[in-house]
Design a binder for these strands. Structure first.
Lengths: 334, 334
DNA sequence: CTGAAAGCGCTAACAG
DNA sequence: CTGTTAGCGCTTTCAG
């Protein structure tokens, strides 16, 4: 293994000069830097991560806690994770993967052992049991999603409330008067997942504001047909549907058409989902994007700034962006 | 921060005794161990990861390289990753997440900096550019999937060749004489992904052996309808289909029924996919399971044994297991 | 069975 | 602008 003293000897300088030349933490003459860099290159020097963490009190590793629960859309989680890793690398950090399952102990462990410098926590619940710990820990952290009380924390997410509203407003502008929300599976609401609640709130608020009749339906996967039937039975005047449930999107489209309703002629469909999902549906879906890549990047950037000692906003809500595709149209009065 | 000297003082022993009491690397009197353990508990001591890595020349971290390419089934990758993390934790290791994108440089970096002790590499191609590096590196590694030449490496995976055969044999036993394979998207074959090739081989071999007529069709996502039509056009006697393409499974089922073919009455459908996918389809699918959880666990266990200095098998092929569900039946001679 | 002491490789005062 | 030096917290000889 080539170490810093090897580089120092080769460049004809002291180890600290090598260290400083590489970190840039103090001015180095152009000529010396050249020599150091050449030595580094020639020897293929890479600082030992453990030694660096010990002496520098920084591991340059972030922990990412991913959810394992049912009812969450796996590709979205994965897209998020990839964006976190990619962005972290751009800031010279690596990412340690933790599962939700490890719970608070896991957070404690990686924090106390100084394995990581900071934490990113996904799938936050309104009353998340990890919040006290996150507030108490000396490590900076960023949450993806908003708990009921975000004070003293740093949270980032799509503004799901506004996303729910945006879908309804879009339908309202098209003349629809009766709308339904097909939501995440019931367990997601039961465990108080923050974003699911926000969507319902936004949806309901906007519907009320526009004097529309509205209903909300948490839905299990695989229940597209029953759901479609139930919606039409309970709400015969229904012409607008907002889907916040990725796996159900296509099946629902099929189910409605099976029941004789054409999209968008008879029924307008909007979704809150990743763009790829909306684009690749049989009928491209007008949707508010769930921008996992951007959320992931933001989370890392906030964390890096906190590590640099900066004070960052407690909450970062990304404004929803609706893209019109083929699934929504003017209400045709029959 | 509480350190080993604090624990030592509290327990009235030397630091080295604390270290040994915790690692079990040399005999400690029952009484001393008790005192050390009590002190550890009372002070909430956790060894500093960096210091431990530096002195012990082991970081207790494994790197997991996940694929980002198109054409791979994201939930499968995620299931695999989760299983790796879970198993690694059971062996007192953590997992660092790397993306394929980082390529060989990434592997070099985490290896040279001693950030990780070992590597797990997914999505191996027949002629994977990372193989020379993996063979040369002093770090142990395990590949998920088999390259063309696995010598000098440790590889684990479902025996996809046997899986392809198992599907065909199952159809053969049911009297089918004309079968088709709906495979992964073309790009997966183009970049020589090992498992995709193995399935084709097994499929073809078994079909030939049984004197069946057979065709192979790499398929893009979203092309279920065209694919179904093409299959029937090119192979009018077709009664058995093997699907090795998760996202296309349900749509294909729909497409065939749209074309007037009932499953399994007119057409038998088998798949190679995770059990959850096969179970949750509208018609539960007879399938060979892609056991990502087991593959992940095996990979970690092999790696841990290699880290312990054991010599392990170069290849671990998990035998396919076919589960009969509702999608296959006897060929009905018309 | 236990302790003392020498590092592991790097960073960051401190001193010039 | 650069070098010397004292640790960072732990593991592991070497001694007893």
């Amino acid at each position: 293994m080539v170490k810093i003293t090897d580089v120092a000897r080769r460049a004809g300088v002291s180890p600290s000069t090598v260290s400083y030349a590489l970190s840039g933490k103090r001015p180095i003459s152009e000529e010396t830097r050249q020599r150091v860099e050449a030595a580094v290159r020639e020897l293929g020097y890479r600082p030992h991560a453990g030694a660096r963490a010990l002496a520098g009190r920084r591991s340059n590793v972030l922990a990412l806690v991913v959810p394992l629960r049912t009812g969450i859309h796996v590709p979205t989680v994965m897209g998020f994770a990839v964006s976190v890793v990619t962005t972290a690398r751009r800031h010279d950090h690596d990412v340690l993967l933790l599962t939700q399952e490890e719970g608070e102990d896991g957070l404690h462990r990686v924090a106390d052992t100084a394995l990581v410098d900071a934490l990113i926590v996904m799938d936050v619940q309104l009353d998340d049991p990890r919040l006290p710990l996150l507030r108490a820990l000396e490590l900076p952290s960023v949450l993806i999603g908003f708990p009921a009380d975000p004070s003293g924390l740093t949270c980032v997410d799509l503004d799901f409330r506004a996303a729910g509203e945006a879908c309804v407003e879009h339908l309202a502008r098209l003349g629809h008067r009766s709308v339904a929300l097909v939501g995440s599976p019931p367990e997601v609401y039961v465990r108080q997942t923050a974003f699911a609640h926000s969507v319902v709130q936004g949806f309901t608020t906007a519907a009320d504001r526009n004097g529309m009749s509205s209903t909300v339906h948490p839905c299990e996967p695989g229940t597209a047909h029953e759901t479609a039937e139930r919606l039409l039975r309970e709400q015969p005047a229904l012409t607008g549907v907002v889907v916040h449930n990725e796996p159900l999107l296509e099946p629902l489209l099929d189910a409605f058409e099976h029941l004789g309703l054409r999209v968008p002629t008879d029924l307008s469909l909007t979704a809150i989902c990743p763009d790829e999902v909306a684009e690749s549906a049989r009928v491209p879906i007008t949707s508010v994007a769930v921008p996992s890549a951007e959320v992931g990047a933001r989370a890392v950037e906030l964390l890096v700034r906190k590590l640099d000692g900066a004070v960052v906003a407690e909450s970062t809500l990304l404004a929803p962006w609706i893209t019109e595709r083929g699934s929504t149209g003017r209400r045709t009065v029959v």
